[in-house]
Amino acid sequence: METAFDIVLALLLLGVGGWSVIARNMMTAVIVFIAYGLLLSLAWVRLHAIDVSLTEAAIGSGATGLLMVIAAHKVAGDTKRVVQLSRGFHALAAVFAALVAIGIAALAFVLPGEPVSLAAPVLARLPESGLGNPVAGVLFVFRSFDTLLEKVVLLLALTGVWALARDEDWGGVPGLRLFPERHSVLGLLARTLPPIGFVFAIYMTWAGADVPGGAFQGGTVLAAMWILVMVAGVRKAPRVSSPLLRLAIVTGPVVFLLIGFLGFLTPGAFLAYPEGFAKPLIVAMEIALTLSIAVILGLLIAGPPKGEDAP
């Protein structure tokens, strides 16, 4: 039964993924890609990776999908330059792609028969941190250096998006399309959902130390609520030069760095936690990160500043 489910899921992944590649209309392709992302998070559940499943649904499918929907909407008219390739070229590309796929599939049989795993060492040292979720342990204890750098990557992505504003629009509000009809369903949702989402996000961050969840998933939920509020026109997007906004963006990274440097003092290594204080410090860091991640994600999707009175 389970095997049958897995086989259907794998075939669906290939079918839907393939559809998003060959779809003629760009908007269709993007929407199919979002559906593909949801199927993929199901596959992650089947692979016993609930944390990844949540991240895939939130970021891989949700946030990425939203960005691409916005893009597909704006470039919908780009058709005149679509190069008509010959059938022969398509066939050649298909053969090449098939060879790549077969080659990679064949590697399944050449990996060493004995699987390798760090599960045991992770579990052996996890109690020192007081965390219950081994994935959180890897992200915030053993490989927290990666996670710290990943936050810098997010900051850089944000400046990278802002870099694409026009000079005269600098300091203005991001150019997210607004639908300011006061009594629309969107408006209603934007007034009722955020409190619920807020509570849910806090729970996800809090619980992430012990069960799947964490700052990223919580932050994404918060970001989704914020985007809903901005799109519905209930609250205006803030100016990118707003000091309060800047503070929210850097709070998470600053707390992360401070805790990293604290490790130099005690117990004596960068990003090491003082004995007995690991869990409270990690939870504090995660809360700060949730806020920053939510704001950064929201701003990444809202796009570069477009001047104050852009429609």
Partner: peptide, 13 residues
């Protein structure tokens, strides 16, 4: 554990 947490964490990053 149902899976090695290290590659799972790498995927999240």
């Amino acid at each position: 554990l149902g899976g090695d947490p290290v590659p799972q964490a790498l995927v999240i990053t």
